[in-house]
Design a protein around this nucleic acid. Structure first.
Lengths: 245, 245
DNA sequence: CGCGAGCTTGATGCCGATCAATGCATGTGG
DNA sequence: CCACATGCATTGATCGGCATCAAGCTCGCG
């Protein structure tokens, strides 16, 4: 992590994409060093979001995208009546705010689940630059497309999987993304509550809890509150594919 | 509908965006007439897709987007095991193929539910042109963003609504989109089977059928096979919001 | 130490899945 | 034109998975 000199407020600190360790995951993928410089001139500010605070809310005017630099977020929408749905969890290198482009207003809340930092990407300027830098344009489109594909995967999960399968898929997805970022594939600390997991997976928190316990009994996981150790990733995978079920 | 001179094959016929009655719904929204000409030079071909045929399949190489000109499509993904999920229904003016941008391969099947025609939009060229025409760039981004927002809405539906609410939301969405295209808001013919509706809504076909019957008993709908008449749209809306429930 | 948020676990009930039979429309061949 | 096949829809009976309701439990924190 960056370690700013004392007295410098990290939330105002300029961080170069060119020297960011997330550049292989984030918007700059595939860009040359001088293209990176152009992008850096655009991503001028950073913002700190303490745990529990929102980065933006549904209804807020849309001006910028945000790249998660450190920390962890959830996005959630709510319907007229109080119903509430977590639509995703975002970690370092992932983009927040794509939902706002269509209507110039954000359509969901983005909430930090731990103290976090984001890079602010003014959208107008991103459009301008991506008209000049085709690699940036291409990468931006890929990111939006992948979000659509991810959403379709969640629909499959919500539409046709049972509780165990949903939780297994969720855990494997998490560990895979953590592994990409250099963390252990087997040991993780959940940043979200059982209720938030349940909301994402279309289950009640009790069902999430019971399913964790079941996986533990079966020797697939070790569960201690939010500390999870994956003992048998293959068995989790098999649950989803139906190989051994 | 277009009525080509005899002997001219409609699937090869050039159709100008500039004179298309869908231009206010489709990619060209907000473009000037000379910008439209540029877009027309890009959208050179049209393709006929007979009912039951696929426009593309998961795994196919991604080269083009497609705008539905006439007809009706479903998109569906399937997991390793046979599980299958309809991820959307597309009608005139809507774009197909956005899922392919991220990985250069399509990730879902697009199947015509009735004899249909699409405009072929070569993606490479679309990227090039949208670097020059910022209105096109903007509109394209809006379309992708709205697809993401739509998907989040479906997640809410699948994650937290009960069968009646799901079907009500589905019907209201359909009638609204049909109305935008100049059709009646109250009378419609479903292009898809009960099973396809069920797949989209995360329900079994029997449940879809039962729920249709229930709505009919309650006087909200008139149901004759695939012919639906909406008798009380407000009651359907109230079902979703929980106003009267 | 005691409070509270979040987690676990048990008992019960309901919604929608499943299994099964019948009905209805379309199309095909004799 | 009818007999029959086929695909889709409806309806009923039963079952099971998850929600719901209701206690306790754990851990961090003032």
């Amino acid at each position: 992590m960056t370690n700013p000199a004392p007295g410098i407020r990290p939330d105002l600190l300029k961080v170069a994409c060119a020297s960011c360790n997330l550049r292989e995951l984030c918007l700059p993928v595939g860009m040359s060093s001088d293209q990176l410089e152009q992008l850096d001139s655009l991503v001028a500010t950073r913002r700190a979001v303490p745990r529990g605070e929102t980065l933006f809310r549904a209804g807020d005017g849309f001006l910028s995208l945000y790249a998660v630099r450190t920390g962890f977020f959830k996005t959630c929408i709510s319907s007229e009546d109080g119903r509430d749905q977590v639509t995703g969890f975002q970690m370092a290198g992932e983009l927040l705010g794509l939902d706002g482009i269509g209507t110039d207003k954000h359509t969901c809340d983005a909430v930090a689940l731990e103290d976090s930092h984001v890079c602010v990407i003014p959208y107008q300027q991103l459009e301008e630059l991506s008209r000049e830098v085709s690699d940036l344009q291409r990468q931006f489109h890929k990111i939006m497309s992948r979000e659509i594909v991810r959403d379709h995967g969640v629909m499959l999960l919500l539409g046709s999987m049972r509780a165990e399968e949903r939780l297994a898929a969720f855990l494997l997805n998490l560990t895979q993304r953590l592994q990409t970022r250099g963390f252990s594939a087997s040991s993780l600390v959940l940043r979200m509550t059982r209720e938030e997991i349940g909301s994402y997976l279309g289950l009640k928190l009790e069902t999430v809890s019971r399913t964790f316990s079941k996986f533990q009994e079966e020797g697939l996981l070790e569960v201690k509150q939010r500390h999870i150790r994956v003992l048998d990733a293959q068995a989790l995978q098999a649950l989803i594919n139906g190989t051994a079920c």
